[in-house]
Design a binder for these strands. Sequence first.
DNA 1: AAAAATGTTCGCAAATATACGAACAATAAA
DNA 2: TTTATTGTTCGTATATTTGCGAACATTTTT
Lengths: 109, 109
Amino acid sequence: MEHPKSYTHKQEQLARFAKAMGHPARMAILQFLLAQESCYFGDIHEELPIAKATVSQHLKELKEAGLIQGEIEAPKVRYCINKENWELARKLFADFFSQTGYRKENCCQ
Amino acid sequence: MEHPKSYTHKQEQLARFAKAMGHPARMAILQFLLAQESCYFGDIHEELPIAKATVSQHLKELKEAGLIQGEIEAPKVRYCINKENWELARKLFADFFSQTGYRKENCCQ
DNA sequence: AAAAATGTTCGCAAATATACGAACAATAAA
DNA sequence: TTTATTGTTCGTATATTTGCGAACATTTTT
């Protein structure tokens, strides 16, 4: 076989989280939710320089990545950090970045 | 004005790093470099299930995001973690994830 | 019941991303 | 000087992402 290796589950999970965080609007949404200024769609939208349809789409992506969750609180919608997955992401990123960082015997000095 | 706010510099920088990490192949490359198994393109390529042209492209993206750097060591090419930016990324992600995480007075419990 | 408020979904356009083989460039080895 | 080795770049195809307005669905309010 030409390409023996594939990707590890951790690499894929980390990439999935990273990808979800890979847009300024989504980072802004996450920070807004972390700051607990509000959890309502309308307030999130007001904070961002994009149309509500686009905000809704970004929220959907964050939800599908598992970083947030949403529930209807008629007539509004409340979005929250998904604590369980948030902890997972925090840990995966922490492990990733403390992965020696780099060594003394680095082939790159 | 309809949309008063934009994104902060930190949000954009974090998103840029996250985006670069948002693909399993690129995560695999970073981990390979961190593990210091080798820094040569050929060895990186062997580790991945994709064509060399594609590997080269992913390396270019990581380089443009500032996470790695490359130098010619004829006839090979050596890629390395960009230490300065790596530290920056580490710090930005650490700060981001320790951003209270979430509060007791969370509007989402 | 009609009107207002709040978001989601649809349809579309434009921009990016992903992947590959073939061609190319540069150095090293024969 | 050929030939081999090592990567990059080019051209192309396909898929995904981003963004918007309009239409739609739901619940509240009047």
